[in-house]
Design a protein around this nucleic acid. Sequence first.
DNA 1: GGCTTCAATGCAATAAATTTGCATCAAAGT
DNA 2: ACTTTGATGCAAATTTATTGCATTGAAGCC
Lengths: 142, 142
Amino acid sequence: MCKQCNYETLLSAARLDATDNRLRVLEVIGNNSYPLSAADIFKTLDRTYRINRVTVYRILDLLVEHELVDRISTGGRAFYYGMAPNAHHHPHPHFYCKRCGQMDCLTPDSLNVDSEALWKTFPGRIDKVEVRVDGICKNCMK
Amino acid sequence: MCKQCNYETLLSAARLDATDNRLRVLEVIGNNSYPLSAADIFKTLDRTYRINRVTVYRILDLLVEHELVDRISTGGRAFYYGMAPNAHHHPHPHFYCKRCGQMDCLTPDSLNVDSEALWKTFPGRIDKVEVRVDGICKNCMK
DNA sequence: GGCTTCAATGCAATAAATTTGCATCAAAGT
DNA sequence: ACTTTGATGCAAATTTATTGCATTGAAGCC
């Protein structure tokens, strides 16, 4: 849940028109406390507003490309989407439960990743460092 | 390239029959210096021995399940496969080039991940911590 | 030897997630 | 009004992986 982000502002800062659909996709992602799949986002929106699946994919691509949204890989087949790092969202690792598919955010410092040396020495461009913990969540352990 | 692993031994240690196909899949993965996609492995094998795509998938599932092989997610759609951590293969991060799809292994200490606290406190089961660096590789930068 | 069993493999069809191509529509210029 | 342009929708295609069922060949048993 993000009370601090203003989605219209985020969009206009990225020089993107704040269409209803874009705002809604961004809201669904930003107001959720864990990352969601494209299918989740589509289902949530379509229940209330009627939107096409492809439109959701296209908006997600756009938001990822403009770095408002982060495309996160899972141990499964689909990508998940969460807010990209910004003033209110620091990079953090995720936990993926291979039983139920739920993805949770871990606190930024639950794992300590020191990537400084790599950034200095890597002979190419680094865009992001993704850290994912795979396993079985508390609920599924029962 | 792994000179130290004996693939028959690995298979039998996991109580799996060392069929030709299983050995070949394991060899292709183990003898390669970076992870490969199922399609890569299939193409490599099919050129020489004639094998079915589905057989490759099934063997990969089996090897992953028995922890001989590691299924690695990419910034793309397909999974990649590399040797699972063992005496000769330490866990390490990977670099994924989003332009050409090439995945490289980074040295185990190129990024320093301290996950000790998490293992202690996490209320569920942790199977692995995957660290992936995304960006554009040296070659694609030109 | 002949019979049964069973795991490994192959082949065809299907599924899941995403992408592409093309049509439409509405707002912004001119 | 006329044209352009970007956003969206719809249907079809693509990519990657999985399922169901048939075949085969070796291992055990009478």
